[in-house]
Amino acid sequence: MRKILISLSLLFFGLFLFRTVVELPERDKPDNPSQVYTASHYLKKGVKETGIKNIVTAISLNYRAYDTFGETILIFTALCSVLTIFKREKHKISYSMIDVSHFKSSIIVQTVLTIFLPFSVLFAFYLTLYGTNSVGGGLQGGILLGSSMIIFSIIFGSAKAMDKISYPFWVFFEGAAVFTFVLVGLAGIIFGANFLTLIIPGISASYQLLVSKVMLILLQIGFTISSMAILISIFFSMYREETQSASESHS
């Protein structure tokens, strides 16, 4: 009975999707609506309208800021669902296999990592701050920051890595992207424009470009902090060892 119900609902859903797919325009035709209107508009006028040279950033954070807002909420929800399964450490110090085991990582790996990590962190900041002019953006920079921290904790042990994190503000770091997006969007509403349009109406056009650029860089910094914090939280909640600290805290 249950199987029949499941297959019937799947069939219904599939038919629904198929009807939508059939009505889509044919792929790769030069006179499709997406080719004629949006793409050519973005490519021709994007740089002039937004003042941002990297057109990918201009589309994802200026024209389509709403979609990116949805993405940040999605990442935050993913973190919440991971934490409901794996739980977080109560007193913020976690032990991993590296801390418990008797084998230390080799001196070659440690030396290479100490030389390599500062450059990777610097490159992450470059990606975030120059995402408006060249390749990169908030998500890439944040993930690079987070993965350098993760590699540090794999080689040197997670107890040592936890010292580098300031915990009173960690929850705010995780929610930074959603917070920044809501704040910038509300700033638009307060000054009389729509939500997340990055426009303040009633000022001259040259200042307008500057304002939208500053708002976009704020969005990118929020996205960077948040993706870094979320990646590190997911990793530590998976990586920590249950045995020691959990039994100590219960007893």
Binding site: I143, S147, I150, I151, F235
Partner: peptide
């Protein structure tokens, strides 16, 4: 970054 670093580590 994601495919080579994060996914492999996880």
């Amino acid at each position: 970054i994601v495919g080579t670093g994060v996914t492999t580590i996880i």
